[in-house]
């Protein structure tokens, strides 16, 4: 499997299943998911952390999988859009809301938007502020997500088809 100096065995739990691979140190999580595990839900839009299409959850937090070397994630839990709803056949509430609101067109940014939205809900529940949260808002308490909060927090996910209003509505549907 290539030069040992440049490859390492790495174990990740992906969508609940342990996966052990010998990875080229240069392999980023996005490429590992797409090329090695055939989990192509996470998309490559820019490969440089500038578009958000590759967003997945690592240990429950949303991240750009194109900027994370897989080897550095040994032992981490990764959830992709394919695993968002667990083992069930039923889609995740966010996925259902995106469908109902027609919150996408070409679909390429959609998995990233959905994973990002899942991260947003968790962050707000944990009391993480955003750029538009009032500085005086109490720490440690869930931050109510109004439209402005949703828009700001999802701004790391570009959508060139312009589905933004529908995406914000879909996220609101899940909150309420």
């Amino acid at each position: 499997m290539g030069n040992l100096q440049h490859h390492s065995p790495t174990t990740l739990r992906v969508n609940g299943k342990p996966r052990t691979l010998t990875v080229d140190h240069r392999r980023v999580l996005l490429d590992l998911l797409r090329e090695d595990l055939d989990l192509t839900g996470a998309k490559k839009g820019c490969d440089h952390g500038q578009c958000g299409a590759c967003t997945v959850l690592v240990d429950g937090r949303r991240v750009n999988s194109c900027l994370l070397f897989a080897v550095a994630l040994d032992g981490c839990e990764v959830t992709t859009v394919e695993g968002l709803s667990g083992d069930g056949e039923e889609p995740h509430p966010l996925q259902r809301a995106f469908l109902e609101r027609d919150a996408f067109q070409c679909g390429y940014c959609t998995p990233g938007q959905i994973c990002s939205a899942a991260g947003v809900l968790a962050e707000a529940a944990a009391g993480h502020p955003s750029h538009v949260t009032a500085p005086a808002a109490p720490s440690g308490e869930p931050v109510p997500l109004d439209r402005e909060e949703i828009r700001e927090r999802l701004s790391g996910n570009l959508c060139r088809c312009g589905a933004y209003p529908r995406i914000a509505e879909a996220v609101e549907d899940v909150i309420s």
């Binding site: 192509t40 996470a42 889609p91 996925q95 995106f98 996408f104 679909g107 998995p111």
Partner: peptide, 9 residues
Amino acid sequence: EGREKVGGT
């Protein structure tokens, strides 16, 4: 094709 798009398939 909505299901496939939101499901990542």
